[in-house]
Design a protein around this nucleic acid. Structure first.
Lengths: 125, 125
DNA sequence: TTTGTATTTAACCATACGGTTTAATACGTT
DNA sequence: AACGTATTAAACCGTATGGTTAAATACAAA
């Protein structure tokens, strides 16, 4: 599988994202990583293997411990891919801004209108 | 499934990423979207359903066509998640910079050394 | 109403995923 | 050598994924 797909599919699981969050504050052993989760150590071990295959973590050897360390490089690539679309969502916000400004203008107009004719009935604000 | 997982797993497929790229230059019908791919229309239809479930596209109705349009909002959220780790890869680059500068310093030292003793044999550049 | 075009649904298949439980492995300690 | 702890591997299960082909649906045009 290509790296980007590997990265995104590794990120597509809340447990794995939580593991990365944990590792962002320092390396940890498998046991330490597994502690907060309501699932077996073996399940966590599998998640770690997925993260390792995606190169989101690297693992060392210290006696019987295999400490995991976060490697952010694939995140950088994922970020670069997503950034292609940044303009797109910013445009959308621009349009929303424009729309809100238009609404505001209409509202002001309505107010002016209302002050001229006090008979208008407003059911919904 | 939570939105972020939905988004990342939708992005974890090169065909779907290519579809999004296509849609970034404007809405398109299913047939138009499918044309460049070496797979059945039905397969593309499935991919579109995945993208729709992740709210990465929305679909209209025009006679018998169901044009697809890119919706970037989930990408914005994915981007926000990844950005948490930005500092991390920047740090790594800082360290890489430091390492490269160190290498350079050593290289300069080596050169100085070499110019003093021309007997050194270099097998690999 | 028949025909043609656009698209989805259904049924199927192989493989992957996320979890389990039960071994097996690797290392440190006694 | 035997035990305890850390971790992985193996076998299994239900469900999801990514693809196929064949059938159904929706609409336009003849």
């Amino acid at each position: 599988m290509d790296r980007l797909s590997l990265t995104f599919s590794a990120l597509a699981d809340p447990t794995r994202r939580a593991i990365l969050a944990r590792l962002s504050s320092g390396a940890a052993s498998v046991n330490e990583i597994a502690a907060p989760f309501a699932m077996s150590l073996q399940a966590i071990s599998k998640h770690l293997k997925v993260l390792e295959r995606a190169q989101l973590i690297s693992r060392g050897k210290e006696a019987q411990w295999r400490p995991c360390e976060l490697k952010a490089e694939p995140l950088r690539e994922a970020d670069a891919w997503i950034k292609q679309y940044r303009q797109m969502w910013e445009e959308r916000f621009d349009r929303l801004d424009a729309y809100l400004m238009e609404l505001q203008a209409k509202s002001a107009q309505a107010k002016a209108s209302a002050s001229r004719s006090t008979k208008a009935k407003k059911k919904n604000t």
